[in-house]
Amino acid sequence: MAGGASDTVVRTGRVSRFVIYTVLIVFCIYYLLPLYVMVVNSLKPLDEIRGGGMLSLPQTWTLAPWGSAWSTAQIGIEATGLRPYFMNSILMVVPAVAISTILGALNGYVLTKWRFRGDTIIFGLMLFGCFIPFQMVLIPMARMLGLMGLAGTVPGLIFVHLVYGIGFSTLYFRNYYAQFPTELVRAAMIDGAGFFKIFQRIMLPSSGPIAVVCIIWQFTNIWNDFLFGASFADFDSQPMTVALNNLVSSSTGVKEYNVHFAGAIMAALPTLLVYIVAGRFFVRGLMAGSVKG
């Protein structure tokens, strides 16, 4: 979906256009409402929320819930706020995204430009790996991480995300490189370039767009993951999503809704930012995961 120029031949009258715009705006409100709720309620004192004012703007504006969510709120047993977990997520996401993207690019290059018997089957195997319910790998993975000495650590999570991210990054690069003219590779071969030289000098310089798509996709997926984080992390290596859930669902004490909302926005902010800055690529990534080619 490249966006922009809609060119439809269907003609609509004045009244129906009014109806169409109304419906579209109503749905804008529907999609924006939860975000609005999160933002306004993260900026007001708790008693304003309790008084049934969830939809109203704050009477007293306050940043206290944000401060609390970031650095003092009780997560599990410690009152550290979400800050250390935010850092965990960053430490987890950056290497996992980088490595899976690089491997995906190399795999895509091999699978399109150095084809061999059975390559489609290998690709199919990798691709199917993206769709399995991860419940199926939780038990052995927990053991394997233990054996590798990575249980309950951030590197362990990096490894898990890397392994299950390869399928998608390979998919992106394979589909992209399949459109890349093979004659260029042949020309470079005749010019004397080898496997890695061709990749580095011919393929990589043209891979910008797909690299962006792949990075965004992997970043969003890994940042937003909950299952692996909940299964394989210790208290001090938990990612943001798990910490947020702990914050929200802890049953002790007063429920600080405003702090919860502030925390939720913090967890959402990185991916939301990516979406706003590079929405075009984000959508392309989503689509490539479903309707291929």
Partner: peptide
Amino acid sequence: PAERNIAMVFQSYALYP
């Protein structure tokens, strides 16, 4: 191919973009 001392002109020209 690189060591055959040949050169090739392709249909699509295959210029490195």
